[in-house]
């Protein structure tokens, strides 16, 4: 972001420039804002602010409040239990397993999707035939809604479904599984499906990043005698760093909050061995009508995600987002 000198016509840029104030030329003070400007600010930010407070902050505050009660949703919460719900969540083997499953998705998504997407992006970035079609095919699963993809795979993956029939047809009978019911394979099934679903997104992100790398750099490298792979390893990938780091951030947060695919595929329950923190929350917060305990789990999920996001921003994204972060909020 460049240092925009706020003018009366662009009041919205003020806050973002404020964070970068330390190292950039200080923007002129605007203490003399006209009534009209303030009115405009109020008019433009007001509705969004109200919606944001009403649908984000208030629910978070309410969840934090309900998390201290045992409450089945009928009448007002009266049975205050302090931190009991939190203690119970962290001593419940099923919740600890759910955290492990999320950690598995976080790490495996990075390890599997990252290099694969990079490789595909590098290949597609060359001037090959049908490049547009490859891009379309790779991106199609991402555009598909999770619900539609989940239902489709749910029909393909049962023991008597198409996937096992194909494996049988290929003579791979020993590879047949109850992909959505056998606890020893369900996490791998979900991993493959989220990789299928989100690979296209990573590829498109990487391709966009590659467009911004000047051709002159690789031209200069080839004049100096660098081969194709050498150029990619020494020039393209390092310069793609900011894009890769942003993708990894999105992937980590997505994996931590993974809900829709497992929920639609097989409920994401303990018995099928692929429960995530979010499906655990849903199980208690909705089905079992334990709204207090469910709220506590929601708060845990929120705090974990926030902590990871903040640490990642501070340690990894710092270089890329210099100036775009608001300081001193947390």
């Amino acid at each position: 972001m460049t240092a925009v000198i706020p003018s009366e016509a662009t009041p919205g840029t003020d806050d973002r420039a404020a964070g970068s104030g330390r190292r950039r030329p200080r923007a002129p003070r605007r203490s003399g804002l006209s009534f009209r400007t303030r009115g405009e600010i109020a008019l433009f930010t007001g509705p969004a602010l109200i919606v944001y407070i009403g649908f984000v902050f208030v629910p978070i505050a309410l969840a934090a409040y309900y998390g201290f009660f045992t409450w089945n949703g009928v009448g007002a919460p009266t049975k205050f239990v302090g931190a009991d719900n939190y203690i119970r969540a962290f001593t419940d083997p099923n919740f600890l397993k759910a955290i492990q499953h999320n950690a598995f998705y976080v790490i495996a998504s990075l390890v599997v999707q990252g290099p694969l997407a990079l490789l595909v992006a590098l290949l597609i970035n060359r001037r090959i035939r049908l490049r547009g079609m490859f891009r379309l095919l790779l991106f199609a699963p991402y555009v598909l809604s999770e619900a539609v993809a989940g239902v489709a795979w749910r029909l393909l993956l049962p023991p008597g479904g198409a996937i096992n029939a194909i494996l049988g047809g290929l003579g791979l009978d020993s590879w047949k599984h109850d992909w959505l019911g056998d606890p020893s394979v369900t996490n791998w099934t979900v991993l493959v499906l989220i990789s299928w679903k989100y690979l296209g997104f990573a590829v498109v992100l990487f391709l966009a990043g590659m467009q911004s790398i000047p051709d002159e750099l690789s031209e200069a490298a080839s004049i100096d005698g660098a081969g194709y792979w050498q150029t990619q390893l020494r020039i393209t990938i390092p310069l793609l760093g900011p894009t890769i780091r942003i993708w990894a951030f999105l992937s980590i947060i997505g994996s931590m909050q993974l809900f829709d695919l497992p929920y639609i595929l097989n409920g994401g329950r303990p018995a099928t061995g692929n429960q995530t923190m979010a499906t655990y929350m849903m199980l208690y917060g909705q089905e079992r009508h334990m709204y207090g305990f469910g709220s506590a789990v929601a708060v845990i999920l929120f705090v974990l995600s926030l902590a990871v996001a903040l640490v990642y921003q501070r340690l990894v994204l710092r270089r890329d987002t210099e100036g775009a972060l608001t300081r001193g909020v947390f």
Binding site: R38, I41, A42, G46, I50
Partner: peptide, 12 residues
């Protein structure tokens, strides 16, 4: 705060 209050009053 004034801006926020004004905004709230307006939308409400």
């Amino acid at each position: 705060f004034i801006a926020l209050a004004a905004a709230s009053a307006l939308t409400l």
